[in-house]
Measured scan of single mutants.
Amino acid sequence: SLSVDNKKFWATVESSEHSFEVPIYAETLDEALELAEWQYVPAGFEVTRVRPCVAP
């Protein structure tokens, strides 16, 4: 099958004044980091952490 098993990760994104967490959907932690950097670094943010979303 061609289905992709995307998992939810939380990326911590920082600017000079703010820090916030955004959801990233990817297959692996490395891919989540790449996606977060691709989305947020060009906008002037720094991705400081990516972690798996742990269900309660």
Rank of each mutant, 00 (worst) to 15 (best):
L33E: 05
W38M: 14
L33H: 06
V13F: 05
L2R: 07
N6G: 10
A26Q: 01
T48Q: 04
A36P: 02
S1A: 11
Y40V: 05
V47N: 02
S19W: 11
T28W: 03
V54R: 10
E37P: 01
Y25M: 05
S1G: 09
K8E: 05
E21D: 09
Y40D: 03
D30W: 14
T48Y: 02
E21M: 08
V50K: 00
A11M: 05
V41R: 09
W38N: 13
F20T: 03
S15I: 06
R49A: 14
V22Q: 02
E17F: 13
S3A: 10
E21R: 06
S3Q: 12
P56Q: 12
A36E: 01
A32V: 02
V4T: 12
S19F: 07
T48K: 08
V13L: 11
H18I: 13
V41Y: 05
I24F: 04
D5E: 12
E46C: 10
E37C: 10
S3H: 12
E37I: 15
P56W: 11
T28A: 03
A55W: 10
E21N: 07
W10V: 06
E34K: 15
A55D: 09
E14L: 09
V54Y: 11
E46S: 09
S15Y: 06
P42V: 07
T48H: 04
W10H: 03
P52G: 07
G44C: 04
P42M: 07
K8G: 04
S3G: 10
E14C: 07
L2S: 09
F45C: 04
N6F: 14
V50W: 03
E31D: 06
D30F: 09
F45G: 02
V13H: 01
F20A: 03
E21Q: 07
S3M: 11
A36V: 05
V47D: 02
E14K: 14
E37A: 09
W38S: 14
L35N: 04
V54F: 12
V41S: 10
T28K: 03
A11I: 12
A36K: 01
G44H: 01
E17Y: 13
H18L: 13
K7E: 03
V13G: 00
S15F: 06
T12E: 02
S3W: 10
F45L: 04
T28G: 05
Y40K: 03
D30Y: 10
V47S: 01
V50H: 01
F20N: 01
K7G: 05
V22G: 01
E46N: 10
F45Y: 13
Q39N: 06
G44T: 00
L33P: 00
Y40S: 04
V22S: 01
C53F: 07
W10F: 05
E37V: 13
T28M: 03
W10K: 04
I24R: 02
E37N: 12
W10S: 03
P42N: 07
S16C: 08
A26G: 03
L35I: 12
Y40W: 15
A11C: 08
A43C: 15
V41K: 13
V41D: 04
A32R: 01
S19R: 12
L35E: 04
F9I: 00
E14D: 05
N6R: 15
D30C: 13
V50P: 00
I24N: 00
K8R: 10
P56L: 11
N6H: 12
S3C: 15
V13A: 02
V41N: 13
L33M: 10
K8A: 06
E17D: 12
